[in-house]
């Protein structure tokens, strides 16, 4: 078993947070906005849910707090970064989802054909 398998499947919140961080380091509010953007507003995270998940992800080594903080912000904000392990877990979950979609397409197509024939 791959070590990433232990973390799959990812919960929706976790998946969205990791996806948001896949584009680069972000602070908490940046993650919330990026999640809303990526899901076209269909999935919205609140601060409580966000930090609960970030804490779990940091405990598991999927995300880390970056040492560099923006100097333009007062007080400086905490930024978060996807670790290489986090990236592997995310890729594994995306591959899993691709299979799910493939199967779904196949079965929905067959079911759809049955109805029309």
């Amino acid at each position: 078993m791959d070590d990433t398998d232990l973390f799959l499947p990812l919960s929706p919140a976790t998946l969205h947070i990791l996806l948001a961080l896949a584009g680069g380091d972000l602070h908490g509010y940046g993650i919330m906005k990026e999640v809303a953007r990526q899901s076209e507003g269909q999935y919205k995270l609140g601060p409580g849910t966000l930090y609960d998940n970030l804490q779990k992800l940091m405990d598991r080594g999927l995300v880390k707090e970056t040492s560099g903080r923006s100097k333009n912000e007062d007080p400086p904000r905490r930024h978060y970064q996807l670790t290489s392990f986090g990236r592997r877990v995310l890729s594994a979950d995306v591959a899993r989802l691709k299979n799910v979609i493939k199967e779904a397409k196949l079965h929905l197509h067959v079911a759809g054909s049955g109805k029309t024939s």
Partner: peptide, 17 residues
């Protein structure tokens, strides 16, 4: 433990959101 880690950030997000 949670409060000390994240209260500042949560309040800041509250202000922005």
């Amino acid at each position: 433990v949670f409060r000390q880690c994240y209260s500042e950030e949560m309040l800041r997000i509250f202000d922005e959101a």
